[in-house]
Write a protein that binds this DNA or RNA. Structure first.
Lengths: 225, 225
DNA sequence: ACCTGAACACCGTTCAAGT
DNA sequence: ACCTGAACACCGTTCAAGT
C-alpha cells in the first residue's frame, strides 16, 4: 500500500518526535475537542516540542489533515467478509461502508473535499464499486462515471448533514431555513407550503441508503439488456 | 419574499454605511480576489469605515457569507420561461439551473454546507422539483426525500469538483491521488489498475446531468405504476 | 538532520467610550 | 443608534541561528 513518503532519516541528529507521534496526538486532539481546536501551536506543546519542529515532519497544516483522515480511514474501514456474491449488493455494501465511516467523524468536512480519494485502504472499496458496475454490464468508462456519481452523492450527503447537525448543536436560534419556511406563500409555492410543518422531521431522517439504491438503479439502467 | 430582518432604523444617528453597501463591497472583493481575501478588516476599510462598524449591520462573518450567497443567487437564478410541460423535464431544468449557478462561483464551498437551502428565490426551483416528483406519482414525503437526494448529489458534485479544480490551479506538484494511482497493484485492484491512465481525463469530464438523469430515473421508479 | 526563539503578518471579536 | 480606538487572544508560517 503506497503511503506518502516520510522524510528520510539517514544520519545526523536522532529525531525527537516522529510523524506517527504527531498524527497520534493530532487525532486525539481532534477526537476530544474537534478540528477547530487543532492548531499547530497546541499540537506542538502536546507533543512536547515547538511549532516549527512539526514543519520538519509535515509540509503544512493541510497535509497534516489529509494524513489524519487517512490514518482514521485505515483504522476504521473494514472489508466485509465475505463480500456479497451479487454485484449489486457488493456495490451497495462498499458505498455504505465508506459512507458510515465518514459520517461517523464530522470533522471530516474540512478535508473531505480536498481530493476525490481517501486513504489507500479505501481503494479496495472503490474497486468493489467499479468492478460491480462493470459486472452489471457497464463499460469501464461508464463504471468510473458511475462511481463518481455515487461519490458525489455520498460526499454531499455527509457534508450537508454534518454541517446542519453542527448548526443544530451550536445554535439555538431558529435557522435561516426555519424563518424562510415560516413565511411561505401557498399560492406561489403550494407543495412546499403544504409540507412545511413536516419538513424538519422529514429531512432529519436518514435516507442515504434509499437514495443510493435509487441512484444505483438509475445507473444500472444504462447497461444494455 | 422573506428576507432576513435588517436592523431597524428608527431614530438617532443616521447610518453612514448600509447593509447593502456592505454586501455589494463584499461581493466585489470576493469576485475579484476570492473568499479567502475577504476579511472584516479589509471590508471595513473598503467601505471607508472600521471593522466594528460592520458588526452593527451583520451579526458575524458567517452571516455575512450567507447573505452574500443569497444576494448572488437572487441576481443569478433565472426561472425558465416557460417551464417545460413534462414534469420530468421540469425537475431536470430546475436542478440544472441551481447547479450551474452554484458551480459558476467556486467560493460557494465554504457557505454551501451551512444550510440546506439557499436564497428565497431558490425556493421556486425547489418547488418545481418537489412538485415535479409529486406529479410523477411520488407521495409528498417521497418527493421531499427525492429532492434531498438530488440536493446531496448536486452539492457533492459542486463541492468535490470545485475543490479539486482549485487544487489543480494552486498546486503544481502531483496530487496525492496521482501518487496513489501510480502504485496500484493490478492483482488486488484490477479494474482500477486498468483504468488508471484514463482516470484523470475521465473524472475531469462533466457528468453532472448524466448522473442526475440516472438518479432521477431511479427515484421515479419508486412511484407505483 | 533536527530543533529552537523570535518575529512577521495577520485574524475575528469584545469592550468601553464617544457623539 | 451608530461609530471608533484600542486591545484581546489568538493564528500559520518564515527566518536565522543553534547543536
Amino acid at each position: 500500500m503506497p503511503q506518502p513518503p516520510a522524510p528520510r532519516r539517514t544520519a545526523g541528529r536522532p529525531a525527537r518526535i516522529s510523524r506517527e507521534e504527531i498524527i497520534r496526538t493530532a487525532s486525539r486532539i481532534v477526537s476530544e475537542d474537534g478540528v477547530d481546536r487543532l492548531t499547530m501551536r497546541r499540537l506542538a506543546t502536546e507533543v512536547g516540542s515547538t511549532p516549527m519542529a512539526l514543519y520538519h515532519h509535515v509540509r503544512d497544516k493541510e497535509e497534516l489533515l489529509v494524513l489524519l483522515l487517512d490514518d482514521y480511514a485505515d483504522r476504521s474501514l473494514h472489508r466485509p467478509e465475505p463480500p456479497p456474491a451479487d454485484p449489486r449488493e457488493r456495490i451497495l455494501t462498499a458505498a455504505v461502508a465508506i459512507h458510515d465511516v465518514l459520517a461517523a467523524c464530522p470533522w471530516i468536512v474540512e478535508v473531505l473535499t480536498a481530493d476525490d480519494l481517501l486513504s489507500a485502504s479505501a481503494l479496495w472499496f472503490v474497486e468493489q464499486i467499479v468492478a460491480g458496475l462493470a459486472d452489471c454490464g457497464l463499460t469501464l468508462e461508464q463504471a468510473v462515471h458511475g462511481y463518481r456519481a455515487i461519490w458525489y452523492f455520498t460526499a454531499g450527503e455527509i457534508l450537508v448533514r454534518a454541517t446542519s447537525a453542527r448548526r443544530r448543536a451550536t445554535d439555538d436560534r431558529p435557522t435561516y431555513r426555519d424563518r424562510v419556511f415560516a413565511g411561505l406563500d401557498p399560492a406561489e409555492l403550494p407543495h412546499l407550503s403544504r409540507i412545511a410543518p413536516r419538513w424538519a422531521p422529514l429531512t432529519a431522517q436518514d435516507t442515504y441508503e434509499q437514495g443510493l439504491r435509487a441512484l444505483l438503479d438509475g445507473l444500472l439502467d444504462q447497461a444494455p439488456g
